[in-house]
Design a protein around this nucleic acid. Structure first.
Lengths: 300, 300
DNA sequence: CCTCGATATGCCCCGAAGGTATCAACCTTT
DNA sequence: AAAGGTTGATACCTTCGGGGCATATCGAGG
């Protein structure tokens, strides 16, 4: 069986072409080196070296074996260093889940921060809704998520990344579109409304219900994703309440107006991760995720 | 320092995720295996495994290290086998020198024979004249040559590959061109002759001199390579004596006629190699080179 | 023929790795 | 809640193999 010590010994002899010098390079004496090479040749059943009175020369098999051994030694040298780099979080992989809407607000800033803090780390992007993100955290499919509260699971840590008000999204031709003043909940009582699906988008559905009173006969559509709502507004199907950062989506034919009743922190987006995560790259990136970001335009 | 035993131990544990089963796979008991892994982690300064009551799981560094170790072990496994294959001559490299003219006669057949006898062996082709081939053999630049006698060096073995007569090459429009009967030396006394360079093509120069008497005023050109002579004949500059296999060159505008005085073994091409060569692939190919071949058309 | 340079061999010692027995922690089960 | 089972860690012993020192052997060159 080949050992790394044998490989090192053989490479030294193959390069020095002299047992004495090779032994010195290996910090040992010549006799045990000779024995090592003999043993190696015996186990291989191959003559690697031609011992001549004037020194040593390599057979064809010896030349090839020297190169293979060299490769082997480099790999054996690299493997521990790679493990150390990964363990220290300097290289590695962070699998990040994000909601479709966050892709148009904080995702770009988050990626930029991670890139700056741990340049050697790759980020794998997975678009998924909040509930799937929490499930993904638990079963190890993702390391961190950009999601909406609440996070009732234990072992899940979170930090708010972005807090923003809800705004009123109206079609471009709407009577509110041109005015500068905020819209009040009262004024929405006579509007056609596009609402969030109560079961697939529980967070937004309850958020809206807490701010404005909407009668069932006002509701023209319900949808699960913010993108869908804004698209419906853009095609004139009604009015919707959306997070302010949705403006960066740049949906044509949609105007955003402040909602009088919305506190500035009505909508929250958090970074979430398992407190028990052992991903070293994540731990180096965490400080970047604990500080709020400003919403920005979508990534290119 | 990482050892292959440690790598094997770690891969076993990383794949089984259980010290007991891993130990069984390694044909050892569990305690020394635990120690090995501990020692490995200590020397790396990295936690590779998470010991949990229900067994073992891998850290990010552990996963990467497992893959590196796997690679390492495969290489360590492959290296000895490669050396054995090369030593047995089943794979390897034969560097073959050949004269330009032999490229149009025996080279194709020689390559085919080698390919058949030792399919795993690569053949590196080097076109070079006889004197360079002999020099190349001595300094190790080539393993075997296809060359013309004499080979006066010691340690050089040779075997005749092809013996053939000299023929008369005339331009297509020449008065000899159409006739079937051999041309005699006497008839060449009034021809313009293209001759071999006495110093660069000593073998052919003396060969021709021994067969026909050529006056200095007949000689229109001298050249070192057969190809050059035939090209000059083709463009109407005169008549030349060339080995019969030159016909496979297919030079346009040239006709070949037997030379009455040429014995059938006037020209010889030999395989030459160092009797001291240690190239195993060459030794497996040698039986193929000891038997004469028929000249054939050039390789495609 | 002798000497010198270079590798091989004999003999001893030490360290590292494996085996057996046992411990400690944790989970399950009754 | 206590007992038993599972799983990895520790203690102690033995053995095997590698390395060092001294020396033999072999071929080349003066």
């Amino acid at each position: 069986m080949l050992t790394l010590d044998q490989a090192r010994a053989f490479v030294a002899v193959a390069e020095e072409l002299h047992f004495g010098r090779a032994a010195a390079r290996l910090h040992m004496t010549q006799p045990p080196l000779s024995r090592q090479i003999q043993k190696l040749e015996k186990t291989l059943g191959v003559t690697l070296l031609l011992r001549e009175p004037r020194g040593v020369s390599l057979t064809a098999a010896g030349k090839a074996f020297r190169d293979e051994c060299h490769q082997l030694l480099e790999l054996a040298d690299r493997a521990p260093r790679r493990a150390q780099l990964i363990a220290s979080g300097q290289v590695g992989l962070i699998r990040l889940g994000y909601t479709a809407a966050s892709g148009f607000s904080v995702l770009g800033a988050v990626l930029a921060r991670i890139k700056e803090a741990v340049p050697g780390v790759a980020v794998e992007l997975h678009e998924m809704v909040t509930s799937h993100q929490l499930e993904g955290l638990r079963n190890g499919a993702i390391d961190v998520g950009l999601a909406r509260p609440p996070f009732d699971l234990e072992d899940v840590d979170s930090a708010p990344l972005l807090t923003e008000p809800l705004v009123v999204a109206v079609p471009a031709g709407h009577r509110f579109a041109g005015r500068g003043a905020p819209v009040s909940a009262e004024e929405l009582r006579h509007e056609s409304m596009i609402m969030y699906s109560p079961d697939q988008a529980e967070y937004f559905s309850e958020l809206v219900a807490g701010l404005v009173e909407v009668r069932a006969d006002q509701v023209t559509h319900t949808a699960a994703q913010i993108l869908t709502l804004v698209a419906l507004v853009g095609s004139g199907h009604g009015t919707a309440l959306v997070p302010r950062s949705t403006q960066y989506l740049g949906m044509p034919g949609v105007r955003m107006l402040p909602l009088l009743e919305s506190p500035p922190d009505a909508v929250q987006l958090h970074a979430v991760w398992l407190s028990t995560s052992t991903n070293p790259a994540l731990h180096r990136a965490l400080p970047m995720l604990r500080e709020p970001v400003d919403a920005g335009p979508p990534m290119q």
